[in-house]
Amino acid sequence: MSSRDLPPILILATEACAYPGANSVGQAHLGYPDNTCIMRVPSPAMFPERFYLECFDRGVGGIIIMSCGVECPYEGAYEVLAKRIDRVYQLMKQRGLSADRLRLTAICTVCNRAFIKEVNQMARVVAELGPPGGERAAA
């Protein structure tokens, strides 16, 4: 799959779980689309709503937040994150952005299959919807 011309996918991967999980996928040499960029974060709770929207404004086609889920080492942060993402969905809706472009999921240090599944799914979404804003034009 040539992902060269597709909008980039940003993956926010938690330092404790998902980032090592992505490395585990690498160790297993399982391929996934290369229009991805994984950023290591302590807790995605630090990103305000506008961060996500700005990413889309700049051309990011999709964002996957790979958190630790309930295993989050920062007590309470996951709940805060989940609530915030709900608000981001609202704002995306207002802007005519498809909610499919943003995913909140939990990936553990050895969740190879789940990782691949999430990335492929988002790659399909991005391929289908094109650059952010594409869905507005279509509508």
Partner: peptide, 12 residues
């Protein structure tokens, strides 16, 4: 009883 991932606790 937490059902958390063994690797995620052991690896660190």
């Amino acid at each position: 009883p937490t059902l958390d991932c063994a690797s995620c606790i052991t690896t660190p």
